[in-house]
Design a protein around this nucleic acid. Structure first.
Length: 270
DNA sequence: AGGGCAACCCGGACGC
DNA sequence: TGCGTCCGGGTTGCCC
């Protein structure tokens, strides 16, 4: 379930590999994944140049030469793969773009995930409800503190609320709370200023470390890529139920909060 | 407001 | 090896 670090790793690799390439073929194997009729989608995407690659929350954004935007959300299990010219893949892919140099960009396993073609207005509308980018300049301690004070619920589910902060999901919310030494069921508005400060610093610090390590994905982005997925063995609490905490040797516990799995160390998170 | 829940979807895990 | 069953995960929408 890609979150900011995984999408950022994709974004950086896409920026280095597909920029200024021209799309010469579009294959849509899964029509449900796109937002307009396939013929229209192909008409608007084929023959276009890739002019920019960016990210908003968990969305990847590919800007085309004609001013349209390909906006993708991988949801669960979705992934992106860049195949070298002539490289054969076992999976068919939900949507595939072939470039003039015969490399191919695969969007794979878009089951709940999607790849939409938007005008700028449509994209703005799609992103209108998203909270601040936690790695962006507008995410300040004061903003976080103010927003926390307005919320009655527990901090863990709040961190995964895309309207509260964009791009954090189930895994990194647990990792962030571990780093900040805050228990996931603590009420957001009851965090003291020291805890808010720790949370504020833990958010970018955990996300940036995960990005540097390549995120926690299982599959590479392309042949020879040994960056993607490097964070897997660095996770502190996520999916480590019953295993010793790396910080204090307490046992990592799993609880459910608002229907969300929440891993934490009961002895060093307060 | 926020918690609960169903729907979406199917790969992968598990049972036999 | 195979076939059936079930679960998970982010998001949306609807209910209370």
């Amino acid at each position: 379930m890609p979150e900011i670090p995984e999408m950022e790793v994709y974004k950086r690799q896409l920026s280095q590999t597909i920029m200024h390439k021209k799309i010469v073929e579009v294959i849509v194997n899964r029509e449900k994944a796109i937002n307009i009729p396939t013929a229209e989608f192909k008409e608007l995407v084929n023959e276009q140049l890739i002019v920019f690659v960016s990210r908003r929350g968990k969305h990847i954004i590919i800007t085309l030469g004609n001013g349209y935007y390909l906006v993708g959300h991988l949801m669960l299990g979705g992934r992106i793969y860049l195949a070298q010219p002539g490289e054969k893949l076992k999976t068919s892919g939900s949507v595939i773009f072939t470039f003039r140099d015969e490399s191919k960009l695969f969007f794979i396993n878009l089951r709940l995930g999607w790849l939409h073609l938007y005008t700028e207005t449509e994209m703005d509308r799609a992103f209108a409800g998203l909270g601040p980018e936690p790695l962006g300049p507008f995410f300040t301690e004061e903003l976080l503190s103010t927003k926390l004070a307005q919320k009655r619920g527990a901090i863990k589910p709040l961190l995964t609320d895309q309207e509260f902060i964009a791009g954090i999901g189930n895994c990194y919310s647990d990792e962030i709370l571990f780093e900040a030494k805050i228990k996931p069921d603590r009420k957001a508005k009851e965090l003291n200023s020291d805890e808010v400060k720790r949370l504020f610093f833990a958010i970018p610090s955990v996300l940036k470390e995960a990005i540097n390590n390549g995120g926690y994905m299982e599959k590479p982005f392309s042949l020879g890529d040994n960056w993607t997925g490097g964070h897997n063995e660095h996770l502190q609490v996520y999916d480590r139920e019953g295993q010793p905490c790396y910080r204090c040797s307490g046992l990592v516990q799993l609880i459910t909060l608002s229907g969300k799995k929440s891993y934490y160390c009961p002895s060093c998170q307060k």
